[in-house]
Structure formats: structure tokens, C-alpha cells
């Protein structure tokens, strides 16, 4: 895993908040957006910006270099995702759809990227998984976290995380939709 932001670059940018913030945002914002999109939050872009509004002011207190920063960023993203899911459960949002006001297809970079990656079917794949398996899989392959980091974020043991990811892969492999999606 080769991020543009390395420990050396992070150390060099200390004291220059504007460039440091921009570098951190550009390094992690796309992954956070992908993670939140995979988790099915209501407004992934807005929540992504909320995550960095919480992370960037505290960036000087983070230890552990880029690895520690990644863990912290996705810890905040995970917490915001959980809050968003709880809010959706409490108050399901019912919005009247007005086609003339719906400009998301044109303006959203997320939608364009989703079409480029796999139109709609990636989220459908994740939708087959239970919540915890989905969370582990997202943190592992979208956020790029290790089992230890995922365990720390989710508050579980490493063995539990490994068990969850194993079940997740088994579910995906056995699911018929996986074969339909991958088949030419």
C-alpha cells in the first residue's frame, strides 16, 4: 500500500497547517467517501466533509504517523456512519422526489465514479452481507486497514474481526448474485 502521504511527508508538513490539511484531505477523502458510500449513509459527501472537519483540527494530537492517522480518520468515519445509521433508524427520511431538482446525477462525482467502478452492483454485493461483515469488509479493502486497526475501530478482538471477514467472503462466494455479477 503506497499512499502519497508518507510518514516523512507528514512530519515535514508539521507547522504548515494549510498544506498539511490539504494533503491529508486529498489522501483520505476519496477513501472515506468510498467507505461511507459502501456503508449506505444518506449523504456520503456531506458526511465525508464532516469527518474531516472533526479530524483536521486535532491532527497535531495524533501519533503513529500515517498509520495512526488512517486509524483515527476511519475511526471518526465509522462513528459518523454509526450515527447516521442510527438517525436513519430513528427518523426515516421521506422526501418527495422532484425530478427537476434532482441534479445529483450530473453534479455528483460519486455517481460518476460509481458508474466507472461498477454501476450500482458493488453496493448490491455489499447489501447481501450482514452489517458487521459489511463493516469489516469495507474497513479492510476500502479503508485499507489491517485486522488490528479494524478491531480497534469496531471495538472487537482481532479474532472476531477475522471471523467476520471470513464469513463475509464465504457469503459473497456462495451467493448466486456474485456469480451473476462476475460472469461475463
Amino acid at each position: 500500500m503506497t499512499d502519497a502521504l508518507t510518514d516523512e511527508a507528514l512530519q515535514a508538513l508539521r507547522g504548515n497547517d494549510a498544506e498539511l490539511f490539504s494533503a491529508v484531505y486529498q489522501s483520505f477523502a476519496g477513501q472515506v467517501l468510498g467507505y461511507l458510500s459502501a456503508k449506505g449513509v444518506q449523504d456520503p459527501e456531506a458526511l465525508t466533509q464532516d469527518v474531516f472537519l472533526a479530524v483536521l483540527p486535532r491532527i497535531h494530537a495524533i501519533s503513529g504517523g500515517v498509520k495512526g492517522l488512517r486509524t483515527f480518520v476511519f475511526s471518526v468515519a465509522h462513528a459518523r456512519m454509526v450515527d447516521d445509521h442510527r438517525r436513519q433508524v430513528r427518523v426515516p427520511e421521506h422526501q418527495e422526489f422532484e425530478a427537476e431538482r434532482d441534479t445529483r446525477e450530473v453534479l455528483s462525482a460519486e455517481a460518476e465514479a460509481m458508474d466507472r467502478v461498477a454501476p450500482g452492483e458493488v453496493l448490491a454485493l455489499l447489501g447481501f452481507l450482514p452489517e458487521e461483515q459489511r463493516e469489516v469488509l469495507s474497513l479492510r479493502i476500502i479503508a485499507g486497514l489491517t485486522v488490528e486497526q479494524v478491531a480497534e475501530i469496531m471495538g472487537k478482538s482481532q479474532g472476531a474481526v477475522k471471523q467476520l471477514q471470513r464469513r463475509a467472503l464465504t457469503t459473497l462466494r456462495e451467493h448466486s448474485a456474485v456469480k451473476e455479477y462476475v460472469a461475463p
Binding site: Q49, A109, V117, L137, V178
Partner: peptide, 30 residues
Amino acid sequence: LLKASLESIAGLSALPAPAPRGELAALLGV
């Protein structure tokens, strides 16, 4: 087959960073 599906899921990490707005834009100085 499973690897292909997992790579497609991992492709979500390639999403471009959303353009900062509001307070975040002020924080980033853009």
C-alpha cells in the same frame, strides 16, 4: 470470481475527494 468481486468493492476507495465546502473549505484555505 470472489477476487474480482472484492476488487470491485475495493474500487470504491478510488473515488475522488469531494470538493470542500463551507467550513471545511475555510479550514483548508480554498
